[in-house]
Design a protein around this nucleic acid. Structure first.
Lengths: 326, 326
DNA sequence: GAGGAAGCGGACAGGGTTTGACCGCTTCTC
DNA sequence: GAGAAGCGGTCAAACCCTGTCCGCTTCCTC
């Protein structure tokens, strides 16, 4: 058994996948002692692979990009990932369903039988969730290409205004696609919905990249959705104070901003498409509510109070079923 | 220097560089006996490399995959699908993130340059949406395998009850994973959340497949979510009548059951995790509410009416921002 | 500037692996 | 049917690989 060679190949594959690998983690993954990992790294270096190492915390090993690698093979995990990913792509919101099916089929063919079985055993039915807009693969390609080439992008947004932006990142989140870009006309960072973008050709000149505030795209986008601006995008938004720990509240809210005010007290900002809906949304937390504002929200609370009181007065129909767990 | 591993990698390179290699030549190049070459080839095969051999004169060894004429003939669409799917898999809710990255690298390697560029041009940042439970790849594999093998599956659900089911389909929907199965204990079709399943080994005997009502899994699952049984699974569920067209209501609800009662009147059944939350959920529709039942729901409406009235009486703080569109 | 986290690499013993040699068999082509 | 090429079993001896132990260095943080 050539455990060593296999491990060396696996090590290469791992080093490819991730920017920095601490030695201890690699040791765990490869099921050997850290000492052996060091030896393996040394071996690969002797074989000509440029593996850099960074000391100190956050250090680890890194395979320099642009390396000519031996043909690596799929391992079990990759097979599963392929099967899952490609079958899931059916609901990615990108028009690649059929291509994904074909790609899976193609890849399957170059797999060893064992992995092929693994893939075959994992048949997934992907069910589209209603309300997710579709992005065409071509648009996505165009956006991706502009990002990659660092070329100024011109596009029509929401089929009206034309924008000029420096595109930085293509982001997928919860079935939707976004383009993170610097808006040249407004001089600010913006997150555009990819499904509303119609790129115009040709793309503009190259730009020199700017620093994204915070540096981390994921954090930036998440921030746009739930950070201090997490509730923009809704026509109505308002703020209340709840007699609940912040932790409890944030467990039940996905799109608002929760701020701790005390052990059993927190501030909550939510957004919704109407004042009534917004007021109702605050009701889901079983706690007393103190409205901070705006006045529209207060009015909505008053309205709902009246409506709920009326509802509570309607005659009971006892035969209706109660709760039930499935 | 570990000769063996180095030689194995060298052998891979050689096989990659040239179409056919007679064993004797390889032996000479690698400075080992022909016997060792045969062993090396065997080793590579054990590692999964598809090395074909041709006997007779002009015979020799050939690496099937990874050569520049790979059987991996992706077209542009497949390349895009792979790139999208695998980068997206990061947020699939399955623990395959790193494996997906590696898989993408692996296929990338055996692609023609043009497609490789295409893949490289489409870099996606996948942002996880909070609140989506993770399913382990192993569990998914186990479920998939049982479905594939048509074997009765035993598992612990929500870490308490043990179930015996005939598994039929693995379904992904909106970032969550479900198992559609026939529950042997309750004698009925059920949809289980994969993240709550802990499969138990071994799986039971084979079963002969049943006909899924309706025949279409996608339709079946969608039906479970918004159809006649869409509200099971919640600890509390209740029913109201709204003064709104059914169409308007169903546009704003994804998990309840809407039934038309007239042009401007409909019945709505919803589920939630508490009576208060349930009552609040009904409030999001801007219309008068008539409670059908159960009594708990009515009480919750009364409670909320009082709470909302109190909230509406708190002193306004005018400087709070109003609505805004992004 | 002290402490700690992380990587480096020497030494060593025990145990598993690898190699070349030899050999008889099979398969394919001419 | 002969010859070329690959297949694979067996064996003993050489080889190497691994985990453990340990003292050093580097770099970050407090």
């Amino acid at each position: 058994m050539q455990k060593t060679s296999a491990r060396l190949l696996a090590l290469l594959s791992l080093l490819q996948a991730r920017r920095d690998w601490p030695g201890a983690l690699l040791a765990e993954r490869l099921r050997v002692s850290p000492r052996t990992v060091r030896r393996d790294v040394e071996r690969l270096r002797e074989l000509g692979y440029p593996i850099a190492t960074f000391k100190g915390p956050d250090g680890g090993y890194r395979l320099d990009a642009g390396t000519q690698l031996p043909p690596l093979l799929f391992d079990d995990d990759q097979a599963v990932a392929l099967a899952v990913a490609l079958q899931l792509a059916t609901t990615s919101g990108v028009g690649v369903e059929e291509a994904a099916v074909r790609a899976l089929h193609t890849v399957r063919q170059v797999m060893p039988v064992r992995l092929r079985h693994r893939v075959d055993g994992l048949q997934v039915t992907a069910v589209e969730r209603p309300g997710t807009p579709q992005v065409s693969g071509d648009v996505l390609m165009a956006l991706g290409a502009a990002v990659h080439a660092r070329e100024v992008l011109r596009f029509t947004y929401t089929s009206q205004e034309t924008r000029r932006v420096e595109p930085y990142h293509l982001v997928a989140r919860g079935g939707r696609w976004y383009l993170v870009a610097w808006d040249l006309d407004r001089d600010d960072w913006r997150v555009f919905r990819a499904d509303r973008i119609s790129p115009r050709t040709p793309t503009g000149p190259r730009f020199s990249p700017r620093q994204l505030p915070g540096g981390d795209v994921a954090a930036f986008v998440t921030g746009r959705f739930r950070g201090s601006d997490g509730t923009v995008g809704w026509p109505c938004r308002g703020e209340v104070i709840l007699d609940l720990p912040a932790a409890v509240v944030s467990r039940h809210t996905h799109d608002g901003v929760v701020e701790e005010l005390g052990p059993d007290r927190c501030r909550l900002v939510l957004g919704s498409w109407s004042w009534t809906a917004l007021a109702a949304a605050f009701g889901r937390f079983d706690a007393d509510i103190e409205v901070v504002g705006p006045a529209d929200l207060r009015d909505a609370f008053a309205l709902l109070a009246h409506r709920y009181a009326t509802a509570a007065r309607t005659a009971p129909t006892p035969e209706q079923g109660g709760g039930r767990t499935g």
